[in-house]
């Protein structure tokens, strides 16, 4: 699926319900790719998707669903439940159309927090190295400077003219030290229940 093509609203009996690498559905049997699903459930914020009962409360107030044909948080949750991660983790994944407005988080009666599931999916895309340029450049700017906006030439003078103090320095050795993962498995693994909130 590409971002431009709206996907099927409801899985048709004769067609695969989700991407070929995910679950496939025939008239009789639906195969759910549990291994693919497990990968997401292990990421912080990803595991609440299992509470989703497909009511669609997340859709009504979703600005991206309103303005972008084919973006539908309920369908994204369904795709995840069926294990069809491949179509959500591709480079031009529909999930980047999410506006991060948190309306779905507010509306969900099951506390799925669809936006958090989408953020967890985005983390997997980064892990796979398919992140969009916008994401990569902010990530690198923060890694290099500790700030999300590049400091442009002349800023120091502008700030001085406005009577503002200079931007204080940031200890980049500290930032880089804490951004290094402990182990590859840190922050994941359903056994430690990370991502569940009390």
């Amino acid at each position: 699926m590409t971002a431009q093509e709206p996907r099927n609203r409801t899985p048709e009996p004769e067609k695969p319900a989700v991407g070929a690498a995910g679950a496939t559905k025939t008239a009789e049997v639906m195969h759910i790719d549990l291994d693919a699903r497990k990968r997401l459930l292990a990421v912080i914020g990803g595991n609440r998707v299992t509470y989703c009962y497909q009511c669609g409360a997340c859709v009504g107030d979703c600005p991206s669903a309103r303005f972008y044909e084919g973006f539908n948080p309920r369908e994204i949750m369904l795709t995840v439940l069926l294990g069809g991660l491949d179509e959500l983790l591709c480079p031009d994944s529909i999930i980047w159309k999410c506006s991060n407005c948190y309306n779905c988080y507010e509306r969900c009666p099951q506390d799925v927090r669809p936006v958090e599931v989408i953020i967890a999916l985005k983390n997997l895309i980064k892990e796979d190295g398919h992140q969009p340029q916008d994401v990569q450049s902010i990530y690198e700017t923060i890694l290099k400077t500790g700030r999300s906006a590049p400091v442009i030439a002349g800023l120091a003078r502008t700030r001085e003219r406005l009577g503002l103090p200079p931007l204080p320095p940031i200890d980049m050795a500290e930032i880089q030290a804490i951004l290094k993962p402990d182990t590859a498995e840190e922050g994941r693994g359903p056994e430690n229940e990370l991502g569940k909130r009390s």
Binding site: N100, A120, N123, I138, I142, G146, P168
Partner: peptide, 29 residues
């Protein structure tokens, strides 16, 4: 009160999308 040493919060959208644990840790710092 101004304090030296604060970094980016960090960015809740793209940085969190890239590294959730790093996002949480930088915020914690």
């Amino acid at each position: 009160v101004d304090l030296e040493g604060f970094s980016c919060c960090p960015d809740p959208i793209f940085f969190q999308a890239a590294d959730k644990v790093g996002w949480l840790t930088m915020a914690a710092r």
